[in-house]
C-alpha cells in the first residue's frame, strides 16, 4: 500500500548552492569575530551559526519536507535548552559575585612561563611546564595518576601534604614532645574529628591521612607538625587542612596526642 512516495528528491543544484553558502558563512563568522561588538560578540556569532545550522537542517537533512510532528521535535528541545540557559542566568546573573571565597586562576596565571608557548606555535618545543609537573607526579602517592592531577595538585591537594612535609625535612631538627595527651585528645575530638578519625570515631575524608600514618612517619618531626598545624597554608598553599587558630600550647597537646599512635 505504498501509494505515497518515500522521501523527496531535491533539485541537484541546491546541494552545491548550500555548500557554497556554508563555506562563505564560515569565512564570514571568522571575519565578523575580528570586529568587536562588545557584549554582542556572542550574539553575532550565534546568529551566523544559527543561519548555517538552519541551512543544513533544511536542505541537507531534508527538513524542508518534514511534517509538523518532526518539526515539533526540532523546536521543543531548542526551546527547552533556551529555558535551561535562561533559568541558569536568572540564578547566576542575580547572585552576589563579590563574595567568592576563592578566585580561580586561568591556565596562564598559573603558568606564566608557558603563557605564550602554546598560544600560536602549536608545534613549538617549550616543554618547561610539563617537566615541572612530572616531578610532582613522581612524588605523588598514586592519587593523581592522570595528567590533569599533575597540574592541579596544588588545588586538589590534600594528598600532597606528605610531599610538602618531606621537602621541609632538612629544616626540622627539634624532636621534643611536651604536651598534655588528654587535653590533646579532648581537642581532637572537637576539631580534628571533622576530617580525621579520633579514637576510631568520626569521618575519614579522602586526603586526610590517619593519625597513625603521620605518627609513624619518621619524616614528620614534631617541629614540622607544629608549623603545619599552626598554619597549613604556609607549609602547603591550597591544602584542604584549615588553619584552626590554635595556641602554641594547644598545638603541643595535639602533637602529644597524635604521638600516642606511634607504634
Amino acid at each position: 500500500m505504498s501509494e505515497h512516495k518515500m522521501g523527496h528528491i531535491q533539485d541537484f543544484s541546491i546541494y552545491i548552492k548550500v555548500l557554497l553558502a556554508l563555506i562563505g558563512l564560515t569565512f564570514a563568522t571568522v571575519l565578523v569575530s575580528l570586529v568587536d561588538f562588545g557584549i554582542f560578540n556572542t550574539l553575532v556569532a550565534l546568529l551566523v551559526a544559527f543561519i548555517k545550522a538552519s541551512l543544513v537542517v533544511l536542505y541537507f537533512m531534508h527538513g524542508k519536507y518534514e511534517d509538523r510532528v518532526t518539526w515539533a521535535f526540532v523546536y521543543y528541545p531548542i526551546f527547552l535548552l533556551m529555558t535551561l540557559i535562561g533559568a541558569l542566568f536568572l540564578d547566576y546573573g542575580f547572585r552576589d559575585h563579590t563574595h567568592f571565597a576563592n578566585i580561580p586562576q586561568s591556565y596562564d596565571q598559573k603558568h606564566p612561563e608557558a603563557a605564550h608557548g602554546a598560544t600560536t606555535e602549536e608545534h613549538g618545543d617549550s616543554h618547561e611546564a610539563v617537566e615541572v609537573h612530572s616531578e610532582e607526579t613522581a612524588t605523588d602517592d598514586g592519587h593523581s595518576s592522570s595528567p590533569a592531577a599533575a597540574i592541579e595538585s596544588s588545588d586538589h591537594a590534600a594528598p600532597a601534604v606528605d610531599e610538602m612535609i618531606e621537602s621541609h625535612e632538612v629544616e626540622s631538627q627539634t624532636t621534643a614532645i611536651h604536651g598534655d595527651i588528654e587535653a590533646g585528645r579532648a581537642k581532637a575530638k572537637i576539631l580534628c574529628i571533622a576530617c580525621h578519625k579520633v579514637d576510631g570515631n568520626g569521618n575519614e575524608l579522602p586526603g586526610a591521612p590517619p593519625f597513625a600514618q603521620t605518627a609513624n612517619d619518621a619524616s614528620k618531626t614534631p617541629e614540622l607538625l607544629r608549623n603545619w598545624i599552626k598554619n597549613p597554608q604556609e607549609v602547603k598553599a591550597g591544602s584542604l587542612m584549615p588553619n584552626l587558630g590554635l595556641s602554641d600550647e594547644e598545638v603541643d597537646n595535639l602533637i602529644a596526642y597524635i604521638n600516642t599512635y606511634k607504634k
Binding site: F100, A101, P104, A148, A149, E152, H156
Partner: peptide
C-alpha cells in the same frame, strides 16, 4: 580527570 565543572577551585 579532575576537570572543573563542579569544582569551585577551578
Amino acid at each position: 580527570f579532575q576537570i572543573g565543572f563542579f569544582t569551585a577551585s577551578l
